[in-house]
Design a protein around this nucleic acid. Sequence first.
DNA 1: GGCACCCAGTGGATTGACCACATCAACCCA
DNA 2: TGGGTTGATGTGGTCAATCCACTGGGTGCC
Lengths: 250, 250
Amino acid sequence: MLNEWGLMTTELSPPAAGGRDSVAAEQVVAHVRGLIERGALRPGDRLASERQLARDVGVSRPSVRAGLRSLAAMGVVQTRHGAGTFITEGPPALVSEALGLLAAVHGIGFDRLFEARRVLEVGSVALSAERATGEQVAAMSDEITGMYASLEDPQAFLRHDVRFHRAVAVGANNPVLGALIEMVASLHYEQRRVTVERARHQLRESADMHRRIYQAIRTRDPEAARAAMDEHLRQAQAAQASEENERGRA
Amino acid sequence: MLNEWGLMTTELSPPAAGGRDSVAAEQVVAHVRGLIERGALRPGDRLASERQLARDVGVSRPSVRAGLRSLAAMGVVQTRHGAGTFITEGPPALVSEALGLLAAVHGIGFDRLFEARRVLEVGSVALSAERATGEQVAAMSDEITGMYASLEDPQAFLRHDVRFHRAVAVGANNPVLGALIEMVASLHYEQRRVTVERARHQLRESADMHRRIYQAIRTRDPEAARAAMDEHLRQAQAAQASEENERGRA
DNA sequence: GGCACCCAGTGGATTGACCACATCAACCCA
DNA sequence: TGGGTTGATGTGGTCAATCCACTGGGTGCC
């Protein structure tokens, strides 16, 4: 699919992307992809055993394992020792480890990651204000309530925070945006588990901020929702940055 | 790292040893990740040979290959037969095949993909209007010029189209956004190579549209840039959708 | 009927061997 | 002397055979 570089190889700009990998393993990937595209494999379904796949595709078992490992690294399948290999279940999700490694390789700072998240979530909240169902809006409301109820428990507060943002993404009814947001945001969660403890006194302010976002969605006002989310994330980014600096001095 | 496992294997003699999942290959990934995070591996660098890595990490060569295959599937490394394994060079990029498979598994339509791209590019063009360097703006201008010069050559036009959008993403100076946009947009290119041929008579209109985006960036007007890009992509999405329908009837 | 156990099937990992490819240096010929 | 050829060497790609660890369900015992 991506191999049509005939379009773009004209200059240096595009990723050189030459190295075509192993044929045998790619045959396995193509085989599974075919089954998926034909609808023969759905989320949660179990693939044939490695030994059986080897016979089906006509390659050795190590090659089958290589192909399945590629699919697993892309988050398409999950393997359970002794049980089998299964199409990944649950909401569409990309492997955030890939983004983490990409950031490490290119020395990408936390601010750039946060900025990308802001673009995604600001766009997403506008869609959510336009088309979130009553049920989805109610789910957001629940998390806001949970935040106000957890002002003395940072870890619980963070849990509701995360789930509110997830609910907003779900309300946008776009699984691609949802997967992208989750991939970027998941790189923040770990760090925030630490920082939220020291931000105890800011929890009320944060809850108010989230409530403003919620109300904009509730009243179907995309522009207000966009503005509120933008302000919230800019503020959160600044807070995280100052935390970063303090840790740097310590 | 190795000592830890050495201890465990000695204790493995009694059948009670606690189970670990798929360790060997992950050790390789962790090893390479460590080298990257320590700055010992930079883009373009060659990793140690598989046989050497096997000795370094203390696992077999197939396990090394499994780990490297995971990293390759995530786009972190590229393997060249007979030459070695290298840290992926060029601008930061994610593997779009993963997104394609994700879309196939969950039956995600083209409109959702296009919508995600719109969110990303609209946000990106605003940043680009704020902070693109003179050199970057000039690069965009070149592509606009190229588009007007290629009104009779759809394939060349498309090349400039793609490169203009890339230039805008680069101007945003956010490698994460750039990688995300490229991942989503690359799923469109293949299809557009076909559709652009039949849209010959719309090329001038498309060029005008792009020029409007460019001028908004040139005059440092993020809101105008955002609006122009939004309109452009909504229109492109609609055009593609109608093409889709026609192909369905044919 | 309930429980423990066992076993067939599955993925995980290793060894060893062989093949295909890329690279470069030594070589040979013009 | 110069340039093309060729071979050695090291690399990744593939395979076969084998054993280990785990899961899940069935079987037999209590």
